[in-house]
Simulated scan of single mutants.
Amino acid sequence: MHALTISPADRIERGRFSDWPLALKSILGFWFVYALTVAARAFMGTDALTILFNKLISISIGIVLTGLIYIAIASLAGNAGIRKKAIVAGLASFVASWGMAGSFIAIEDVMREPKEVFRYQSREGFVIIEKGRTLTVERRAQEPLVLTWPRMGELDTNKRIRYAADVSVTWLFFFAAWSAFYLATKAQAEALNAKRRAVEAESAAQAAQVRALRYQINPHFLFNTLNSLSSLVMGGRPEEAENMILKLSTFFRSSLSLDPSADVTLAEEIDLQRLYLEIEKVRFPRRLKVEIDIPDDLKNARVPGLLLQPLWRM
């Protein structure tokens, strides 16, 4: 007996964090693309290693924050509709963007100062040289003016908040873009899984229907066969009755063991129907004459099992 089973993938799908492979791939994919753009920009300058080191720290923090966004979505709206998931994703992205901005301020001392030098010519004729936090203005007939940008820790609270707000706006769009991509991909995967389950259920229902039809025993055939067996036994013909029982059991065992979705060769189908006809010939020894003529090149042709059975019952 066959039953519709639930695959391990379908059971896992019901969990809150069942789609973590999809989330992980999307997170790493997003940040990998960002890393490629950073690397391309870094190698255009003269101090690529310092830029890559600094960006590697921010990328690592960003991956962690994006993972926390996923955890928030899965925990708070894992089984909810797309609208609630979008709301949770938006709020989590907002919090993550501020977390990214705050981390930039917190790890300022860890960042290496770039050694790359930028030179600009101002409209007033001054030469501006920028290197790390130092800005040098070269003036004609005067000593160069050297300016040093203050560190974030040296700024007052209001300026640090404004800096964090500016940085958070940039990263908000990044986290929101990942959230939108993740939710769209998840919705598509759920739609495909639902469609696949519907197809599997329909296929299983059709197979069950075909199997049920095959398992149906013609009551008249069985009743008449049992009457014939009774007549053979009462008539003192035990050998013929035993032979008929063997043929009957072989026929039912063969017909019920067939896979409804599998085809058999025409020769196998004919052999099965010969058993049926041999049983009928016991009942009608004079009236039933059977001749089967099949070309040899058709014996290996594939046909549905029990295809010929309805013809003998007409």
Score class of each variant (00 low, 15 high):
Thr265His: 11
Asp293Leu: 11
Thr250Glu: 11
Trp178Ser: 04
Asp293Gln: 14
Leu222Pro: 10
Phe221Asn: 05
Ile129Met: 02
Ile57Leu: 15
Gln216His: 07
Ala189Thr: 06
Ala267Trp: 06
Pro295Leu: 11
Val137Asn: 03
Phe118Asp: 09
Leu172Val: 00
Val303Thr: 10
Leu288Phe: 10
Tyr276Trp: 10
Leu68Thr: 02
Met100Ala: 14
Asp166Gly: 06
Ser7His: 11
Leu272Glu: 08
Arg41Ser: 09
Gly29Met: 04
Ile69Gln: 15
Phe30Ser: 07
Pro310Asn: 06
Leu145Ala: 10
Glu116Gln: 12
Lys195Asn: 08
Arg41Phe: 07
Trp149Gln: 08
Trp312Ser: 10
Thr134Gly: 00
Ile57Arg: 14
Ser254Pro: 00
Pro304Gln: 02
Val167Pro: 03
Ala176Glu: 10
Ile245Ser: 06
Thr250Gly: 06
Leu288Trp: 12
Arg139Ala: 03
Val167Cys: 06
Val146Lys: 13
Ile59Gly: 00
Arg160Tyr: 09
Tyr34Ser: 05
Glu13Ile: 02
Pro219Cys: 07
Ile71His: 12
Leu288Pro: 02
Lys281Asp: 00
Ser93Met: 06
Thr134Val: 07
Phe173Leu: 13
Met244Leu: 15
Gly235Asn: 09
Tyr34Asn: 04
Pro8His: 14
Tyr276Cys: 00
Ser261Gly: 11
Ser60Glu: 01
Ile128Trp: 02
Gly132Ala: 04
Ser254Phe: 14
Gly29Lys: 08
Arg119Ala: 03
Arg140Trp: 01
Trp312Asn: 05
Val64His: 11
Ile12Thr: 01
Trp312Gly: 08
Phe126Tyr: 14
Gly81Ile: 03
Arg139Val: 03
Gly45Glu: 03
His2Ser: 03
Thr148Val: 15
Val146Met: 08
Thr136Phe: 04
Ala180Asp: 05
Leu24Glu: 06
Arg133Thr: 02
Arg287Ile: 05
Pro260Met: 01
Asp259Gln: 11
Glu113Asn: 01
Leu4Gly: 07
Gly15His: 09
Gln273Val: 08
Gln121Ile: 01
Tyr163Gln: 04
Ala74Pro: 05
Leu91Lys: 04
Glu138His: 03
